[in-house]
């Protein structure tokens, strides 16, 4: 452990000894893992393994009981949520959470990394740079023709993409996605995998996913969680053949 800590500045994200307990129940228990820049890491594991809680802890939604989360050498566990976002961590929720009343354009605009203070939001002007950036992100997430549509009219899959787009426009270094393809059609899944490949050219991505086919398509490395701990870690083939993983998750 000590040796790993000293090297942690080479990693984009270093999670060490992370623990959180709710009334004595340890949802995440002494968890450690490390992300390299530009890697795609997928977390898999049975329900209740603590996968979503890990994302909650990294983005500050839940506070850790103990342990550390270092992102580019900065400790995240003491920061407020919005400060974590500003330091370069973006997070997509499991159920699509976009602003239904606003148009696609406005959804992306709200996430544009400018005018985030109260006064900044009052002074914020929509200039050419903003519009160009929004249009470019909209092309990436296949929504360039729907900019003026209210988000409530989008399909489930399109909402998921929009939320990913809202992350992209923040220009984060680490993007965390919670089950991005859940509830998507086969075509949408394919497009999403494509989208993720584009995204990883410039970002590090941490994904929670159940669909093993999809995991195999995108993952550089896979971390398997079970009862709040790391059960196994490595390439998809390694993990698939690990007897412990087969026992608790994949089944025989």
């Amino acid at each position: 452990m000590k040796a790993a800590k000293s090297k942690s500045k080479d990693f984009l994200l270093a999670v060490e000894g992370l623990t959180v307990s709710f009334d004595g129940f340890k949802a995440v228990d002494d968890l450690s893992f490390y992300l390299d820049p530009n890697e795609i890491r997928v977390i898999i594991g049975p329900n209740g393994a603590g996968k979503t809680t890990v994302l909650d802890l990294i983005c500050g939604k839940t506070r850790a009981t103990s342990g550390s989360i270092r992102f580019q050498g900065r400790e995240l566990t003491k920061m407020k949520e919005h400060q974590i976002v500003h330091s370069g961590v973006g997070r997509k929720f499991q159920t699509p959470s976009v602003f239904e009343d606003l148009t696609v354009f406005e959804n992306l605009e709200v996430s544009y990394p400018q005018g985030h203070s109260v006064m900044g939001a009052l002074a914020f002007k929509r200039d050419l740079a903003v519009v160009e950036e929004i249009e470019s992100v909209a092309r990436t997430i296949f929504l360039e023709d729907m900019l003026e549509q209210p988000a409530s009219l989008l399909s489930h899959g399109q909402k998921q993409w929009l939320e990913i787009g809202m992350l992209l426009i923040q220009k984060p270094k680490l993007i965390m996605l919670d089950e991005p393809v859940a509830g998507m059609s086969v075509v949408e899944r394919k497009k999403t995998a494509e989208l993720l490949k584009v995204i990883t050219r410039e970002h590090t991505v941490l994904v929670i996913e159940h669909d093993m086919q999809f995991v195999g398509d995108i993952a550089d490395r896979v971390t398997v969680m079970h009862q709040g701990k790391v059960l196994s870690e490595g390439s998809i083939e390694h993990v698939k053949s690990d007897p412990k993983v087969i026992e608790v998750y994949l089944g025989h």
């Binding site: 983005c59 939604k61 407020k80 949520e81 919005h82 976002v85 500003h86 973006g90 997070r91 929720f93 959470s97 976009v98 602003f99 239904e100 009343d101 606003l102 406005e106 605009e109 709200v110 996430s111 990394p113 005018g115 985030h116 203070s117 109260v118 939001a121 009052l122 002074a123 914020f124 939320e163 809202m166 923040q170």
Partner: peptide
């Protein structure tokens, strides 16, 4: 202004606003 949009957005999707980097 954008401020007004954030206020309305906060009402329905507080977490999304928070994790879009707003205090």
């Amino acid at each position: 202004r954008k401020l007004g949009r954030i206020l309305v957005a906060m009402n329905t999707q507080e977490n999304r606003v928070r994790f879009s980097g707003y205090d």
